[in-house]
Write a protein that binds this DNA or RNA. Structure first.
Lengths: 255, 255
DNA sequence: CAGTGGTCTAGACCACTCA
DNA sequence: GAGTGGTCTAGACCACTGT
C-alpha cells in the first residue's frame, strides 16, 4: 500500500536512523554527497536533497568544504523570571543577562548599537497603553556570550519616562541593570508579562544572530510593570533557540 | 566588493521584498516556478531553489498542484500559568486546554491514544526527584482545535501516586481537569515550573502535528508541584509554534 | 486537459578547507 | 591538489489540482 518512497527520502530516512540510533554520534561526519550518491546509485543532487531535508530538521550542520556533521546540542542560556529579582541584581550588580552568563562561566558582552526615538510598533503601544505610533525611546541591544551573538533585545520606553535620564541617551546605563534606573525614576519593577512565540528567523535576523539552518528563534515580548501595575517598558527579545531556554517557576494564584 | 549574488538568491531576495513590501499579500499566489525561471532566464530548478529558501523561512506555503502562497499568520492559542487556576477550573469545569479553546470559540478535542507504564526519561526523572529509569505512568494526549492537531502532551506520574486511581487506567479523567484528581489524591497544584525551548519538529512530530515546512515547535517541560513543594507530575508539551503562544504574568518575588 | 509542484538525471564549474 | 559542499543547466517524467 505504501507508495514507493522517492530515493531522496530513502537516503534521508537511512541517515536519520543512523543518527538517532547512535551509529553516527554528535559531531560525526556523514558520508559525502558524492559517496552517498554512489552508494545509492543516484545522482549527486538526489543525495544532496536528502542532506537538505536533515538540515531543515536541524539534525545536521553542513559546512562548505568540510562536510556534513551531526549537530550537537549546544549549551543553553536559561532565563527565567527570577532574573528580575532585585536582590539578585543587588548581590551581583549585574544585569539579568550578564548574571546568567557569568553563572555559566561565559564571557558576556552587550552592545548597544542604537538609541533613538521611533513610533511605537502596534503591539508595543498596546502593551504600554499608548496610542499606536506615539513616539517612544528605542534602545537596541545585542547580546553575546564568548563573542557569539545569542540574542537581541529592543527596549521601548515611553518618552515621558525616559526623557532626561540616561535611558534616552546613554548606551551604558550604569551599575546594576537598567531596572535600577527605572526604580530611581519611580518605577520599581513589580511584575512582568512575558509573551512567547517561536518562528524561523527572518533573513535579517539569521544574519545578525548567525543562526544556522534548521534553527528557529524564540521571540519574547516582555512588559515590565511597576508597583502600581502600570507598564513602563516593553522589550522584544529574539533569541537563537539552540542557545536559549526559558525557565519559569510560578506560584499558582487563585484569581 | 559584494560578491555577485547567485541567481537563486536574487530571485529569493526579490520575492522576499515583494512579500514584505505588501506587493504580495498574505494568501496571494506567487508566480509559478516555470514563470520565475523564464522571467530570470534561469533553469526551473534555480527558481525552485529560491522558493525553497522562502519556504524554510516560513514565508510561503507550497501546495502541490496549486502553487506557492504567501503564508498568513494563523490565530494562536495562548496559554499561560493562569490556566492552572483552581477557580478557573471550578468555574468552567474544563481542563486548561479546553477552557482556552472555548474562550476562543474553537472546538476542542483531546485524544488519549495511550496510557502505560514506562521507564522515566532522564529529564523527567530529574524533575520528579526519581532515579533514572524508574517506572512511571505515561499518559499521551493529543490536542485538537476544530479537528486540527495543535499540540501533544505526554504526562508522567510516579507510580506511587497514580496507582489505583483513574490516572493510571482511564483516558477520561472525569469532571474538571486532571488536577482535580491529583487534588483528591492529596496533591494540590500550588506552583509550576515551566521550561521552554523551541526547535524544528522531528520527522515523527511533523507527521503527527501536520506541521508545515518552515514552522518550528515549542517544547514545554511542565512540572506540577504540590502544597509541600514536591513534584507530582511532569508533562512534556510539543506545540506547533504557528498555532500556540505562551503568556505569563509573573509577580517578581524577591528571593 | 492544462497548469503547478515533486523528483530525478548527468554533467559542469565554482568556492572553501586542509594537508 | 584532493575532497567537499554550492550552484546551475536542460531536460524528463510523475503526482496533484482544477476547469
Amino acid at each position: 500500500m505504501t507508495r514507493t518512497e522517492p530515493p531522496s527520502r530513502t537516503i534521508a530516512h537511512q541517515l536519520r536512523e543512523q543518527i538517532t540510533s547512535g551509529h553516527f554520534a554528535a559531531g560525526d561526519k556523514l558520508p559525502s554527497e558524492r559517496a552517498l550518491a554512489a552508494e545509492h546509485g543516484s545522482a549527486r543532487n538526489t543525495a544532496r536533497e536528502a542532506i537538505g531535508l536533515l538540515q531543515a530538521e536541524g539534525l545536521v550542520d553542513v559546512q562548505h568544504g568540510r562536510g556534513v556533521f551531526v549537530r550537537a546540542k549546544s549549551p543553553m542560556i536559561r532565563m527565567g523570571a527570577g532574573r528580575y529579582s532585585p536582590s539578585l541584581r543587588a548581590a551581583t550588580g549585574l544585569s539579568p543577562f550578564r548574571a546568567e552568563a557569568e553563572r555559566q562561566g561565559k564571557q558576556a558582552r552587550v552592545d548597544v548599537p542604537s538609541i533613538s526615538e521611533v513610533p511605537a510598533p502596534a503591539d508595543v503601544a498596546d502593551r504600554l497603553h499608548l496610542e499606536p505610533n506615539v513616539r517612544v525611546v528605542e534602545r537596541v541591544n545585542h547580546y553575546f556570550t564568548d563573542d557569539e551573538p545569542v540574542q537581541t533585545g529592543v527596549t521601548y520606553i515611553p518618552v515621558a519616562i525616559a526623557a532626561g535620564s540616561v535611558l534616552a541617551t546613554d548606551a551604558n546605563t550604569g551599575r546594576g541593570s537598567i531596572y535600577e534606573r527605572f526604580a530611581e525614576l519611580g518605577h520599581q519593577i513589580t511584575s512582568v508579562r512575558e509573551e512567547i512565540t517561536a518562528r524561523m528567523p527572518t533573513h535579517a535576523e539569521a544574519a545578525a544572530l548567525a543562526v544556522p539552518a534548521g534553527v528557529p528563534v524564540i521571540e519574547l515580548l516582555h512588559t515590565g510593570l511597576d508597583q502600581d501595575g502600570r507598564p513602563f517598558e516593553v522589550t522584544r527579545f529574539v533569541m537563537r533557540a539552540d542557545r536559549n531556554a526559558l525557565d519559569y517557576q510560578i506560584t499558582i494564584e487563585d484569581t
